[in-house]
Structures are given as structure tokens and as C-alpha cells.
Simulated assay, not measured.
Amino acid sequence: MTIDSHQHFWKYQAVKHTWIDDNMSVIRKDFLPAELKNVYSANGIDGCVAVQADQTLEETDFLLDLAQENDFIKGVVGWVDLRNAEIEDDLSKYAKHPKLKGYRHIVQGEADPNFILRPNFLKGISLLEKYRATYDILVFPHQLGAVLEFVKKFPNQKFVIDHIAKPYIKDGFYDGWALLMQEIGKHENVYCKLSGMTTEADYKQWTAEQITPYMELVLNAFGSNRLLFGSDWPVCLVAGNYEKTKAVVTNFISNLSPHEQAEIMGKNAVSFYNL
């Protein structure tokens, strides 16, 4: 199967979705399964993982309801407050949903670069293995030092880095990001999504050649057995369309073996998220 390991749904609300700025106005509308199903049909995608875009329990419930109604949504990465003293109540409740696969916190939006190392957050993360839940790491490059310390603390927890940690492709910054991603890649419980890359470049003038060095680095750091294709739909529409977004990855991996290509385009997502 070809699996899109990272996409979002929402009913657009200006107050809730303030992160969608004027440069991203094309996605200031609703994005729901009926539209994505047509996109997948046109692009040969068999299923997806829906990832939270809002930090509320209502968001998690919203995605689970959509997954229950649509078979092509194979899994959900939701949100719970991992800092909450009563976090086990939420984890226990959601563990009963077969399509709830893991959780994410929008750490990139936290002012503290070491947010991910706060004791109350670490305590919540320490409980995920018990509930067989994965954790998506969403950060900017300046937070990768903390991420390296973070993943060392939980060698048995399944982690995946979203959007190759959002390197500043538009500005050509590479070395500091690359060094830390290589170190993080040495931890075999950590995976990485080939997603969200075109929107870290210039929305209108990006080229695959600009993005290739970043993909080469994570391929070397994580290997084909720990990379997952993801579209970041509908955010990817800011910098093109689904076909172009998918082609960035499929063209890059075209020289790999058929087995390695199949891993990146679906098998790894199935294994990581237990789809």
C-alpha cells in the first residue's frame, strides 16, 4: 500500500487557525475527507494518517470520528495534554479507539527551546509506551539539541520527526540542522517523515534541486527503513499541488531498490503506526 503518513483535516475558523497567515490564504477554507479521497484517487494513494492541527481533545475526537466514517483514514495522531497530572485518564480512554495511533504536541510553537525536556512533559511521554502510542516530534532546527537529549531518555518509545525538522531551506541553512539530524538518526527508535519540505522553501520558486541535499541527509541518517512519505496536505497546497508534492519524494527515491521505495512510500508507515 501507498500511505500518506501526514495530512490534516479542519473546518476553517479564523480565530482557531490564526497560524494560516496572508501568505497561506489559499488554505483558509474547510478541508475534509471527501476532497482528499478524490485527491488520493488521482495520485495512487491507498490510505493516510490524519494528524492533529489543534491542541484540544475536541480535535482528537473530531479526527477519530472522521476515521470511523472513512476507511481510507488508517490512523490518527491526536493531542492530549501530556503535562496534565491526570494524563493516564485520557491515554486509557483513547487507547480503546483502534485507529488512535499516537500523539503530537506543537512544540515548534513553544517559546522555550527546551520545552520538550520539561519534567511534566517528560512524565507524560514516559507513559506512552504502556499504551503502545507513538509520538510525532514537531520542532524547528533550533530545538533539535533538546530533541537529541529527549530521545536518549526513551530508547523504547517510537518517535517520528515531522517535516524533517523544518530546516530553513529558503535561506539555505543546512550545517547545524544536518549535524543534529545525523546524531538523532543514530537512535533506531526514531523515524523521520519526508514531508513539509516545499513549504520550508520559497513557496513560489522552490525547486527539487534545492530540497535534494536535505533529503539525502535524512536518507543517510535514518535509512530507507525509517523514512515515511507524507504530503502535509492541505498545507502543501500553499507551495503547489499534491502531484508536485508527491513527486519531490518519488523522484528522489527512484534510484533506490523497489523494496526501499515501497518502505518509504507505505511499509514504514504501516509498521510505525501499526496500521
Score class of each variant (00 low, 15 high):
H8M: 10
K11T: 10
Y12C: 12
Y12V: 15
K16S: 13
K16W: 03
N23W: 10
V26A: 10
V26C: 09
I27V: 13
R28V: 06
L32Q: 10
L32M: 13
A34H: 13
V39I: 13
S41G: 12
N43I: 06
I45N: 03
V49T: 11
V51Y: 01
E58T: 10
E59Y: 08
I73K: 04
V76Y: 07
G78T: 02
W79Q: 05
D81R: 08
L82P: 07
R83P: 02
A85W: 04
D89K: 15
K99F: 08
L100P: 00
K101Q: 07
K101N: 05
H105Y: 07
I106T: 12
E110A: 11
N114E: 14
I116V: 15
L122F: 04
Y131C: 01
Y135T: 04
I137A: 09
P141G: 00
H142P: 07
H142L: 06
G145R: 10
A146L: 09
F154M: 01
F159Y: 06
F159S: 06
A165K: 01
Y168G: 04
Y174L: 12
Y174F: 14
W177H: 01
L180I: 14
K186G: 03
K186T: 06
G196F: 02
M197P: 00
M197S: 01
T199I: 13
A201T: 09
W206E: 10
T207A: 12
I211G: 00
Y214N: 03
L217F: 03
N220M: 04
A221P: 09
F222C: 04
F222H: 02
S224N: 11
S224E: 12
N225M: 06
N225S: 14
R226F: 05
G230L: 08
S231E: 05
C236K: 00
A239F: 04
N241I: 06
K244V: 07
V248I: 15
T250A: 02
F252H: 08
I253Q: 00
N255H: 14
H259M: 05
M265Q: 00
L275P: 01
